[in-house]
């Protein structure tokens, strides 16, 4: 198993957000986590990536048979965890190209590999640019500076392609996307998904799931996964909303 989450509890500023999440993810799977806003979807992503403002209060997370909490943020990244940000930050003066070069080479260093030389890197980058339709013009701009919502998300998917994660968590990757950009992002995800990696897509709407077909759909409500199903569940949610699940849950 790639990722095994057991009874995970986490809080921020003393407020408990995750109240016992259980989730198993195998290689080769695409999972969708849905649910109303403010119920812990992004928190779950942040805790897995290691964001320090969240406090883990209990439970276990094993990743590649290691205790995830023994690894710091960059170690988790180098071990293949990638977070596609809901709100990617701007880094003025640093082009996407140099940002990726630094990241790729630092991850290579972690794995005991030599840094890629400039020529090999440019070739590698070209290949990945083509995959997600990122132009040279965009790649030479400062990371996310003055990017439209769609460009930001495209950049996230591009970075995912560059870093070839084993576990990619895409947080609200469909927010702020027009329909064409949505297709590009979803197309990128579909091209990047393979039998050796796993992708967790966090989304509020069913819309993205028209383009990305998940193996599992989970509903995260009030800090817990309250229902798990197939992609049919997403359709049901689209029609009925989330309320019926909450009632269902409290009735247990």
């Amino acid at each position: 198993m790639l990722l095994e989450i057991k009874d995970l509890k986490a809080s921020i500023n003393g407020k408990q957000i995750l109240k016992g999440v259980n989730l198993n993810v195998n290689r080769g799977e695409i999972h969708a986590i849905m649910g109303p806003n403010g119920n812990g979807k992004s928190t779950l992503a942040s805790v897995i990536a290691g964001k320090e403002m969240f406090k883990v209060d209990g439970g276990q997370v094993r990743y590649k048979d290691k205790n995830l909490f023994d690894l710091n943020v960059e170690e988790r990244a180098c071990e293949g965890i990638f977070l596609g940000f809901q709100y990617p930050v701007e880094i003025p003066g640093v082009s996407i190209t140099s940002f990726m070069r630094a990241a790729v080479n630092e991850q290579r260093k972690y794995k005991g590999l030599d840094p890629m030389d400039a020529f090999a890197f440019m070739k590698y980058m070209e290949e990945k640019q083509a995959l997600v339709g990122m132009t040279d013009k965009l790649a030479n701009r400062s990371v996310n500076e003055g990017f439209s919502g769609g460009e930001k998300k495209k950049n996230e998917i591009f970075q995912m392609a560059m870093l070839q994660p084993e576990l990619a968590i895409l947080d609200e990757t469909d927010s702020g996307l027009d329909i064409d950009a949505l297709r590009i992002v979803a197309g990128g995800v579909n091209k990047l998904a393979n039998k050796d990696n796993a992708i967790i897509v966090i989304t509020h709407y069913q819309r993205l799931l028209d383009y990305i077909v998940p193996d599992f759909v989970h509903v995260l409500a009030d800090g817990k996964i309250v229902k798990t199903g197939t992609k049919e569940l997403a359709k049901e949610l689209e029609e009925k909303g989330y309320d019926w699940l909450k009632d269902h849950d409290s009735g247990k």
């Binding site: 990244a77 640093v94 990241a103 972690y110 870093l163």
Partner: peptide, 25 residues
């Protein structure tokens, strides 16, 4: 913290992230 976290999530150490951000600035 947000900027540092973003860089570190891509595999950069904290020191490298600071260096990258400052050099860009």
């Amino acid at each position: 913290e947000e900027k540092l976290f973003y860089c570190r999530q891509r595999g950069l150490s904290e020191e490298s992230a600071v260096s990258l951000i400052v050099n860009g600035y």
